[in-house]
């Protein structure tokens, strides 16, 4: 696939997102155990027996929230999927967010937490949202359409030590420091050895500015039912259908 916009695209993401997660998987996993409240609430409130997706499941921390629903979780990193697959009754598989192996118009819900912001062009971010929305059940006479919860990192992070805020460059490389790294990585071009047995890996992020998530959702054919900001992140609850779900909108958490 040819790269677009300033050399960004699939190849770029492979180098600056996927291979980094694959290396940091065990360490990353041990630090990612606390679910975001908005996501946890979304999953807990689903009717029993709902069938849905976790696109970019990482270590599968959201698979522990509700055992009365069934989640097919996917991630690009086989090492993370192996960890996620341990959460019964759910299921985990390896897939790319842009080429999801899911039945169309079938699922009751989907979550995608901290994933879309790793795609390096707007076109690819919108494509990944569309792939999620296409898998959601359409509304019919007896029920609302399926719903997706999308969660991305915000540009506006006044409270965080990272120092980003309105006006900052939105495409950034974020360091991940690993201590006591034993093996020296083969491709050292984006890995810096740091004294004291530390290795720093840089991951690519597109930081979403206010209103941008809603814009991308609508470009992808989704309708925002609810949206908000939660500790350095923007989130939106989305349905694909013009008629589904609008008569009932949850108040902001």
């Amino acid at each position: 696939m040819p790269d677009t916009e300033q050399g960004y695209g699939a190849e770029y993401e492979h180098q600056h997102v996927h291979s980094v997660y694959e290396r940091i998987a065990p360490h990353f996993s041990s630090t990612r155990y606390k679910p975001w409240p908005v996501v946890e609430k979304f999953l807990r409130e689903l009717p029993d027996g709902s069938i849905g997706l976790d696109v970019g499941c990482g270590n599968g921390k959201y698979l522990a929230v509700n055992k009365n629903i069934f989640i097919v979780a996917s991630d690009r990193s086989p090492n993370l999927v192996a960890i996620a697959g341990q959460h019964q009754p759910h299921s985990a598989l390896v897939a790319d967010a842009l080429d999801l192996p899911y039945r169309l118009s079938f699922y009751d819900f989907a979550i995608s937490v901290a994933v879309v912001h790793h795609l390096s062009t707007e076109e690819r971010r919108v494509q990944s949202l569309k792939a999620i929305f296409d898998s959601l059940r359409e509304a019919d006479a007896s029920s609302n359409g399926g719903r997706a919860l999308i969660y991305v990192w915000a540009l506006e992070q006044k409270e965080s030590r990272r120092g980003w805020d309105e006006g900052h460059e939105q495409d950034v490389m974020v360091p991940w420091v690993m201590k006591d790294h034993k093996k020296k990585p083969k491709d050292a071009d984006h890995v810096a050895e740091v004294p004291g047995a530390q290795t720093t890996h840089y991951r690519y992020y597109h930081l979403y500015r206010k209103g941008e998530l809603e814009h991308d959702v609508s470009e992808a054919g989704g309708i925002v039912l609810d949206s908000g900001y939660e500790k350095d992140n923007w989130w939106a609850i989305v349905t694909r259908s013009a008629t589904g779900g609008i008569n009932h909108i949850d108040p902001p958490a």
Partner: peptide
């Protein structure tokens, strides 16, 4: 992979997903 999961997935190629033969 559980057989339940196999019942919910299809080919990942966009050109296949709308074709009945891509499922199961």
């Amino acid at each position: 992979m559980k057989l339940l999961t196999l019942n919910f997935v299809t080919c990942a190629r966009k050109s296949c997903k709308t074709l009945p033969a891509a499922f199961p």
